[in-house]
Design a protein around this nucleic acid. Structure first.
Lengths: 180, 180
DNA sequence: GCCTACATGTAACGTGTTACATGATTAC
DNA sequence: GTAATCATGTAACACGTTACATGTAGGC
């Protein structure tokens, strides 16, 4: 049952993608990993500190002109090893993904069908927007794809997002139909 | 940004499905809502207490022979109203569903392709099992479906689970192929 | 004798979010 | 002047999990 702290590994991973500061990591998260992970500064900075204490990365203060100083983090060999170890470790029990949409739907006999339909229509719109976001991310990745050995894997995760979202949209349409 | 506490509404909802004790609610969660929500006793009992304090339900101590006493909870009108209000309230910003599988895949250029393939094969097996679980839940619901006005909505949520899982399995196969 | 099911409850812990603090530079 | 971007950091809070405590009855 030993729960691994994924946050730590997310950051170790980001350190291999060219991110060198906490700020950059947050940006990367909010763009390319946005559809399956997120992280706040309240996690990033303390975790970076801890990672350095464990010898998995080094820090260096670098003054910049015009901009605030940055703390540049670099993975050590121990850090790379730790990352690889996590990557090759077996999948743990995947926790249930809590789904607010389904929770409401489950109890929806307590409201008029029309309200439920409206609700699903709205959800469908959100999903459609999400698909657009994914297209944006795809472009981002493709721009960098020449220099990035990562690109193939990044596109796999994107593909997941696109296919699952498409399936959700279909389910929405189906369900709206059944209710009408 | 006012975050509603979904736990409270989940419990209010369960009170409309025939669950009268915390114990029953936990069981119901672990069977019928298992694929999109979960809850622990550490949440249930304190929340029930709070719900009573807010006048959304009443409690009654009922002694049982052979078994421990139970505390029977019943929704009040205020409770029903609160539930309906939540149901008809608009979708909030849906939080990112954290996905450990994708997080690892994102950084998988740091390990041999074979390891990644094994990993995806394993994931696919988990998904397949999940599909079987859903079939079990479907039977459960259908057994009760005669007396339950809820059944239609419950089947909608199940359908979601089945369709999304099927899409995930397809993605797995695709991705394994691309890696081979 | 031991495990499981029934039934309720709490305290400690882990994790994550939010709001705040600081402070320079650039663009409108 | 005021907002945004860059950049780091912390403290208070919210939420959820886990492990524990308590106690009976029935099956193996």
């Amino acid at each position: 049952m030993a729960k691994t702290n994924h946050t730590k590994y997310a950051i170790l991973g980001l350190l291999t993608t060219g991110c060198r500061t906490g700020y950059q990591m947050k940006q990367m998260m909010d763009t390319s990993l946005n559809h399956f992970w997120k992280i706040s500064y309240g996690q990033i900075y303390p975790t970076l500190k801890q990672i350095v204490e464990e010898g998995l990365a080094t820090v260096q203060d670098i003054p910049q002109d015009g901009k605030p100083d940055i703390k540049e983090y670099l993975l050590t060999e121990a850090g790379e090893k730790e990352l690889r170890q996590w990557l090759s470790s077996p999948l743990e029990n995947i926790p249930v993904a809590k789904n607010e949409v389904l929770l409401k739907l489950f109890f929806s006999r307590h409201q008029p069908k029309e309200t439920t339909i409206e609700y699903l229509v709205h959800y469908q719109e959100i999903l459609q927007e999400r698909l657009h976001t994914y297209e944006g991310i795809e472009e981002l990745i493709q721009i960098h794809s020449i220099e990035k050995a990562d690109a193939q894997y990044w596109l796999f995760t994107l593909d997941y997002g696109k296919q699952i979202t498409a399936a959700e949209i279909m389910w929405c349409k189906d369900t709206i139909n059944k209710l009408s």
